[in-house]
Structures are given as structure tokens and as C-alpha cells.
Nucleic acid binder design. Structure first.
Lengths: 353, 353
DNA sequence: TGACATAACTAAATCCATTTAGCAAAACCC
DNA sequence: GGGTTTTGCTAAATGGATTTAGTTATGTCA
């Protein structure tokens, strides 16, 4: 007989007990592997196990925990929610910071559980348990798309929330100082003497990315009266970035300055530019984002004007704890100015001189 | 009066109720924000909230969930456990694969929660809840150090476990085919004509990494009777790899072939080698690991003989589900042969010819 | 002033699993 | 054959929060 797990309604130890003809206590003892010290007959153990398998029993962790929980201990369940499609290192930093904070605050009466959980970009609303008040004590949400923001703006999550990377009404938010990245990127490229700047980004835009592009264009328009060419690649993978630039160059596109919205796109672009017989920064200056610490080790090292992850995280984590503690006066919105690293990828003077 | 949360034993709604002089039902209504429809007087709401804050109330999620749980639904809590110190991409892939599997199997009566959780390398035993049977329905553990393996070998985790990347007695394991990576790396370098091969690795070694180094050396010894030089860098960051190679070259060390155990070390080494005035692969051939898909976009593209993440994950995830389903006959150990990508970083003929 | 409605609660059942104390039957012992 | 031990279970309490049905006091209306 096949296991019914999954296809039928869930089963409790009471139903197993009834099915076998013993008490729930006996079933519990067996399923918790306590049957030896509780002196359950071997034959009974076998029958209980068989019934559990047949009925597709899955233990209810809430029930177990409630009973087993060493009372007198507060347990906080914290999570970082991010989209599947976003790069993980950023989230990793957030988790590190959160864990560090938690390690400090853990004591005899207070324990923390921290985890990364993921949602499909644009479908945060389908994430199970998000609207329930019985899952998280607090969360940090990041890498949302406009659809997700829409959902959040209309929803009320019944626990403390910090949004990283965007501004959503009625939430505590930590985000990049608006316009800064776009403006500085444009300035760096213009200072390098670029006349034909191109933006390389993926199909779906987060709020932060949109702002970067807008500010970039605005700054360019102010000075040169001409907007940048925007190249849209299918995704954020290096090969996708490479393919996009390759196609652009093959089509005779002009290019002497590039603003890539992620590291991975930048390194893909590097490949396409070099293979097109052009040099960086001699022919093309490149500005990007320092998502990974690898950006410094690209060849040539990538100039980055964004990637304020460390700084954002450093604000977001204490903010979450302040809200958890019930401090009402915490700032609703924290703006972070990303560090700028001017490296060889935009240093036309040095390589030409 | 300061909040006592954290310093004193945990508080339940019953204690708040007693403190305020109302029933637990009233407290629950207020703390769940149901006070309007339940018609709790504003003054009472205020007093309950004040007491909750004063006593440092933290809701017990197990209690809430138990009650709120839409019964007739099985909930599986799955986790991927990894160390803080390990690179995230592997974990990200595992999570994607797990989520895909879970998305397929989710239905009216079965829900899944998947999360990444982290432990400090070597201190898996300090991870709270690991030995409790009330936390996970199943886990995948990866990036363990020998201390962790020791702990696992002696412990019994009361739920299904799949170990990725190493072999531990009495556990289901998915790992790299032993010796393969080390042997092939050595062969690739020897085929490229390298006479002075060097291994670059970090201070702490996972089982997989140890095996890679041993097999590398064994293969080298078989053919050349001379072992490789092992360079130990402080960590796995690019700058640490760069510093190590730089120091080695500065000290007059000989180097025409390099085996780096991670991408990040390889790209650090690239920098040091180029800055030392040598070319890759002309002067130095480099073999590494394809942790990130960025390896293909290094300059020159990195030859990789490891990084079987996709393949490992593709085995580990279905294995976990088979165990969860109670299939006893699943293989205890699955060996995965990593794909080999020979790229320009070891292609001496092509660049010299 | 009595019928009825409303406000502001409370009592008790419920969710699921675990565990302790206890009980009946069988086995053992001299 | 009466007392003791062992075996193999069961009844019931427990953990923390939620919710439904019910209760009391107060207010409203005719």
C-alpha cells in the first residue's frame, strides 16, 4: 500500500492511536523513539510504525515544541527574506550581521533563530506564512520588485519589518541615498571624457536600480543634453551581459563609457569589450557596483560607486532590534551613502599617459 | 521603567493577565490586535500593552501556531545548514533546487518551509535546536569542518539528514568522487608542462579540500617524485590569496603551475601573478574551482576541475525527499564526478603558439 | 418600568505531542 | 499460594495562545 502522505489531510497521533487500537501515549512514545524505556512491546511498535507510514504521518512541530520548549526562555524567530533571483552575497552579509547581533544578545532567558528565506521575485504575496502572526518575530525584507512593494504597501505584516533597499510607506526602510549612485556614476564617466555612455541593466528593475538609471540619465542630460543608451539584457548573468554588449558593438553601436548595474553584468561586459578588440579603460571606461569583493580583482579593477551593502546592513540590523524592543521613536527611514571606489576601469589618464 | 525583556524569565499572557487583573482572553485579544472587534475598552488595551512591554512579553510562536494552524495541512520545515565562513553560491544552488522540488510537491494538504541557517565553522554542535526533534523535519548539511564531522558522527539527529560534500558514518552523504579533482588538477598542470606546481588553500580544510590536496600531491609524486609546495593563506578572500602569492614570489619562490582551491583565491592569485610581471598561462598555468559562474569570465578564463555543485545538489535534494518519505533502500552514499572545463588559464600551447 | 441592546469582559474548549503517575495482568519466587 | 516484580500499557496533566459561547453590568427606548 502506498504512503498517503501529501494527498490526504494531515494525520495526528490520535488518529494513528485509533487506527492501531492503542492510546495516543503509546503512539507518541514510539514515534519519539522512546519505546524502549517506555516498554512498548515490539509487535506494537511495529504496528504503530506501519500505521504512521501508511497514513502519512508528519509530526506537528508546533505541538512538539510547545511541550518540549524549556519554558522561561524567550525565543525570537528572525528571518531575512530575499528573492530567489537576487545575488546571495548581499544577503549573506545581512545574515552575518544579524547573527553577530544575535550572538551578543543571546542569554539564559533569550534565544534567537535566524534564517534566510526566499520568495520568487514579484510574488512576495505568495510566500506562505507572511501574513500570519505565528511565524516570525521580525524580518528584514530585501530585493523586492515593484509588484512586491505594491503588495507590502497595502498589506499589514503583524510583526516588525525592516525594508532594505527601497522606500515603502508605513515601513521602516534603509536605502541608498536617492540619486547619489546614478549621479556619481555619470560624473565619473563624464570626468573620464566619455561621450557615448551606455547603461547595461537587466529586464526587471528594483526601485533602487530604477533610481540609479534615472539619476544617471538626468545628470548626463544636464551636462550634455543627450541621454544615455540603455541596453537591456535578459538577466544578470555574465554571459547575458556579454551577449548584450557583443550584439550592441556588432551592430555598430558607439561606446566609450559603460555603467553596469551589477558586478556580474560588468564582468560579462569586460569580456565582450576586450573580445571586440577594445581596451578598458583606454577605449571604454566602466563603472559598476561592488556587490562582491571580487570587483576589485577584475582586470582592470572595477570602479564602483554603489554596493553599500555593509553600510545598509549596519543600519538595518540595529533598527530591527530597536523596533523589536518597542522603541517607537526610531527613524522611519535611514539613508545610506555608498562608498565610491575609483579604480583603473575609469582611469583613462593613467593608462593613456 | 526599562523593559525587562532578555534579562528575566519569559512571560506568558497568563502572567500579563494576572498583572493587569483581567482574563488571558482579554490579553490575547489585545496582543493579537483583535481588541476592536472583541470590544476591549481603550483604557484596558492601554494597560495590557503597558504590562506586556514592562514585563518584556515575547509571543510563543509554537503556541500561536498550534492554535492557528489550519489543521489538515502537513507542514514540513526543511533547512540547509551551512557555515558562515563558506562561500554562499553552493548553498544558493541547493536552496533553488530544494525550492523547485518543494514548489512541485506543495498542495492543498502539504506545505513546506525552507530556509538557510548558518553555524560557525567547527562549532556545529553549538547550533541551538540541532539535537531537538521539534525544529526540523529534514536538513541538508554542508561546509562542515572535521570538528563538525566528529560531532555528527557521535550524535544522532532525530530527523532525516543529507550531508553534502563529505562522508560521515551512518548518514546519507553526497560527495565528490574521491581523488578525482586532485588527480585531474595535477594532470592538467603536468600536461601544460608545469614543473613547479603550487597549491593555494586556506587555513582550515574541509574533508573535500583535504582530499583534493592529497590526491593532487599523490598524482604529482607518482609522475615527478616531487610534492607540490603548499601555500596557506589566512582565508579565502581574494586579497588574502593575492598576499600569499605575492609573498611567495617576492621570496623567490618558483611557480609555473597553480592549483587554487576556490575561485576567490584564484582571482587573488591572478592579480599577484600579473603584477609580478608574469603572464597566465604563458608563465603560470592556473587551475581552480568553479564555485561561481564568474570563473569563466576571469581574464584569462579559469580552467576548473571542481565545483560539482549542480550535480551534488541534484542528487542531494531528491535523496532528502526519499528519506522523508521513508524509503529505506536509498543509497547511503552518492558519488558525483565534477565536470572539467579546460579553459585558457592552462592552455600554454595556444597562447605560446 | 420593563424589554431589549450594547459594552466589556470571562470561562472553557481547542490545537498536537509529551510525560508522569498509575493500573492491570502476567511472571517469578520461596 | 500469597507476595513481589516485571511487562505493557492508559489516563490525565501540561505547554501557550486563540476563539466561541456565554455572562454581567450598563444604557436605550417605548
Amino acid at each position: 500500500m502506498p504512503s498517503k502522505s501529501g494527498s490526504s489531510p494531515a494525520v495526528t497521533i490520535y488518529e494513528i492511536a485509533e487506527h492501531v487500537g492503542v492510546s495516543p501515549a503509546a503512539v507518541s512514545s514510539v514515534l519519539a523513539n522512546r519505546h524502549v524505556e517506555r516498554r512498548i512491546a515490539e509487535e506494537t511498535v511495529r504496528r504503530i510504525r506501519a500505521a504512521a507510514a501508511e497514513l502519512g504521518y508528519v509530526p506537528n512541530m508546533a505541538g512538539r515544541r510547545l511541550r518540549a520548549h524549556r519554558s522561561a526562555t524567550r525565543q525570537f524567530d528572525l528571518a531575512i527574506l530575499t528573492s530567489f533571483e537576487a545575488p546571495l552575497p548581499l544577503v549573506g552579509q545581512a545574515l552575518h550581521a544579524l547573527q553577530r547581533a544575535v550572538d551578543v544578545q543571546t542569554n539564559e532567558h533569550t534565544r534567537y533563530a535566524v534564517a534566510i528565506e526566499m520568495f520568487h521575485a514579484g510574488r512576495l504575496k505568495d510566500k506562505p506564512g507572511l501574513l500570519d502572526s505565528n511565524r516570525y518575530h521580525g524580518v528584514i525584507i530585501t530585493n523586492t520588485l515593484p509588484e512586491d512593494d505594491q503588495f507590502l504597501a497595502n498589506a499589514h505584516l503583524p510583526y516588525p519589518v525592516v525594508i532594505m533597499g527601497r522606500r515603502i510607506a508605513n515601513y521602516y526602510c534603509v536605502l541608498e541615498a536617492p540619486d547619489f549612485v546614478g549621479r556619481r556614476s555619470a560624473e565619473v564617466l563624464m570626468d573620464a571624457g566619455c561621450k557615448h555612455s551606455v547603461i547595461l541593466h537587466g529586464r526587471s528593475l528594483t526601485q533602487t536600480t530604477s533610481n540609479r538609471l534615472e539619476a544617471f540619465n538626468r545628470t548626463l542630460m544636464e551636462r550634455t543634453k543627450r541621454p544615455a543608451t540603455a541596453l537591456v539584457s535578459d538577466g544578470l548573468l555574465p554571459q547575458q551581459g556579454a551577449a548584450t554588449i557583443e550584439a550592441y558593438l556588432a551592430g555598430g553601436g558607439r561606446l566609450d563609457g559603460l555603467f553596469a548595474v551589477t558586478d556580474s553584468l560588468a564582468i560579462g561586459a569586460y569580456r565582450a569589450i576586450k573580445q571586440g578588440g577594445r581596451s578598458i579603460p583606454g577605449d571604454v571606461a566602466v563603472v559598476g557596483v561592488g556587490d562582491y569583493d571580487l570587483a576589485e580583482y577584475f582586470d582592470p579593477p572595477l570602479t564602483t560607486v554603489a554596493g553599500a551593502n555593509d553600510a545598509m546592513v549596519a543600519e538595518a540590523v540595529p533598527l530591527l532590534f530597536r523596533i523589536l524592543r518597542g522603541e517607537k521613536h526610531a527613524l522611519r527611514e535611514v539613508l545610506v551613502v555608498p562608498p565610491v571606489f575609483v579604480r583603473d576601469s575609469t582611469n583613462k589618464l593613467r593608462t593613456q599617459g
